[in-house]
Amino acid sequence: MFNSLNNIRGLMLEDVEKSRDMLTKLSEMLRYSLTKNNVNAINLEEELEMVENYIALSKIQFEDRLQFLKVVQDETLEIKIPPMIIQLLVENATKHGISKLKAGGTIKLVTFIEGQNLIISVINTGSLQIAEGFTQLGLQNIKQRLRLLYGNQANFNIEEINDEVIATINIPLS
């Protein structure tokens, strides 16, 4: 957030239009995180808008070091999910994945329906560092929220495969 504000200050020196756009995106993100905190469910589509905002703001920080790829099944857009859950995964992928790599990497977001479940995967270049306290805390938080909302019906998994970290959430379609 403070990095974003600082980057926007820098961006103003070269591209005022884009800076204005970034300020709007940052405002939307702030409003979203302030207002959706005590809501249990929102449309996946709405969460995706926030993720796009977050990615746009991260891109002025990382520039060519960050690529974002989205494979979202249309049928998943209307599904209700707990707010901030994809956002947290993407933040995690950025902070603990992309920002640690000199050459940067790619974040992929995939959503689809499989049987009676919604699958959300966030995949980033990098390696899984369990030792990092913050990651653990963020991930524990996700697990806990899923457990409170869906009991044993939902699950969350994070693993490293071929230099990619894959975080997957599996939520039952109610």
Binding site: N3, N6, N7, G10, L13, E14, I60, Q61
Partner: peptide, 8 residues
Amino acid sequence: DSRLARNE
């Protein structure tokens, strides 16, 4: 590491 932060 951020180019914009360097500019700033």
